[in-house]
């Protein structure tokens, strides 16, 4: 038996494979295809201070090897989450992590404070990187000062593992990563979607109702990998790699680049059972390379 377990600060994962927020619903959508007890964790949909309807349809456009989305944080708000959703997911046999979003520092703070009270939620992921809302969201993740301000405020009220999810739509991701590390983030996840756009030339109109949206899928993998590499060189806290991961080899490349764990997003749409194949593939890789622990792969890229 190979040791697949990893640790993100005080959060223990049975293996490094998690699912990315907004692509895995609340987990139950995948129950016919995924054995949750075989996942390191799931990050559920973005939760905000109050109910949000999200953006108008159309919210999705297919692109070469990827897709654009402009969902706009549709969710019923944190109070509804606590009352109606938490009871249904709190006994899932895996780490359930809540993705926290907002438009103001106060909103992030108040959602985090409420989630802090939920015994079975061991961590939150601060989404300061959503490109699809008018105010807040990505605005916090694109300046170091505001990324730090949100992290600082949430750190004061949130006692468990605090993951901060970074936006790739910045000039220096390393600077922001170091900034949130300084404010007490326990881990950093990256990347969220890249700002993009699609046009229907026949209609001479944008495909998305919001004109621009967030690009995800294999198309963004090289960018994500580069950013994970750069960030993990510069921070001491564990990094979670996200972006286009669709198979075990993709996942392992992120581990080698320095990620302690990975999240699978868009690939779940093409194969809802893909995470199970990734876990099995990582185990197989360890067997083939006679490596005992997946931890030995983290940052093991040979650049000589």
């Amino acid at each position: 038996m190979k040791d697949l377990s990893v640790k993100l600060h005080s959060l223990e994962l049975r293996n490094p494979v998690m699912t990315a927020s907004g692509t895995f619903g609340y987990g139950w959508e995948y129950e016919d295809f995924v054995d949750l007890s075989k996942l390191g964790g799931i990050v559920v949909k973005a939760t905000t201070g109050s109910h949000r309807e999200g953006n108008p349809y159309p919210r999705m456009a297919e692109t070469p090897h990827g897709m654009l989305n402009a969902i706009g944080l549709q969710n019923k708000g944190v109070d509804y989450f606590i009352k109606a959703i938490y009871p249904a997911i709190s006994d899932f046999p895996t780490n359930v992590i809540v993705n926290v979003s907002g438009s103001t520092v106060e909103e992030y703070e108040s959602v985090a404070e409420k989630i802090n009270e939920l015994e079975k939620i061991p961590a939150i992921e601060l989404n300061i990187s959503c490109p699809n809302v008018k105010e807040g969201g990505m605005a916090f993740g694109t300046s170091c000062a505001s990324a730090q301000a949100v992290t600082r405020a949430v750190r004061k009220v949130y006692k468990k593992t605090l993951i901060v999810k970074l936006s790739p739509n910045v000039t220096s991701i390393v600077e922001i990563a170091k900034g949130v590390e300084d404010e007490g983030a326990d881990s950093i996840s990256l990347i969220n979607t890249l700002l993009g756009m699609a046009i229907d030339v026949e209609k001479r109109k944008p495909v998305l109702s919001t004109i621009t949206g967030g690009l995800s899928g294999p198309a963004i993998k090289p960018v994500a990998l580069r950013m994970v590499w750069q960030v993990s060189q510069e921070v001491k806290i564990p990094v979670i790699g996200i972006g286009g991961i669709s198979n075990a080899s993709d996942a392992i490349s992120f581990l080698l680049a320095g990620a302690s764990a990975i999240q699978v997003g868009t690939a779940n749409f093409i194969d809802p059972s893909v995470t199970m194949k990734i876990v099995a593939g990582i185990e197989d890789y360890l067997e083939r390379h006679r490596i005992d622990s997946v931890k030995d792969l983290v940052g093991a890229l040979d650049v000589s």
């Binding site: 895995f24 959508e29 999200g54 989305n69 749409f269």
Partner: peptide, 15 residues
């Protein structure tokens, strides 16, 4: 409506 996941996970297809 255009869809991505088809199983209620992505919220692309709303009406």
């Amino acid at each position: 409506n255009t869809m991505a996941c088809g199983i209620g996970a992505c919220l692309s297809c709303v009406v």
